[in-house]
């Protein structure tokens, strides 16, 4: 079960550059490793991350197998209005994990 964390400043001034931090617990299995019996361990990674700010996509990133387990992603955003910052991680199996946080912009 993937567990996700998201950190967004609670308050910001309009026009400020804020840092959004995110982390998801995930094995990021590359698909290139073998188990003890020599069978290939199937690939299972987060292949896509999207950040929406009040419903508008502000970041999208496609991930590849070289990304470490429990990936941490931080990025900057310009605070334009109060509302919700939401991050969505998509697994190879299609399942999605969502975390959101509120920000007040004055």
């Amino acid at each position: 079960m993937a567990k996700a964390r998201l950190k967004v400043p609670k308050k910001a001034k309009k026009g400020d550059i804020i840092t959004v931090k995110s982390l998801i617990s995930h094995p990021m299995e590359t698909g290139q490793r073998k188990d003890k019996k020599g069978n290939k361990i199937p690939r299972k990674i987060i292949n896509n991350v999207v950040c929406n700010y009040n419903g508008k996509k502000v970041l999208e990133s496609n991930w590849a197998p070289a990304i470490s387990a429990n990936p941490y992603l931080a990025f900057n955003l310009r605070a334009s209005e109060s509302g919700t910052v939401e991050v969505i991680w998509t697994d190879d199996d299609g399942s999605k994990t969502t975390q959101s946080a509120k920000i007040t912009v004055s």
């Binding site: 567990k3 964390r5 982390l23 941490y72 931080a74």
Partner: peptide
């Protein structure tokens, strides 16, 4: 740096759990 930032430190997944 990873250890020092409670957020970036993946060990905190286990603290929370």
């Amino acid at each position: 740096a990873m250890q020092d930032d409670d957020f970036a430190n993946p060990g905190f997944i286990w603290v929370e759990s």
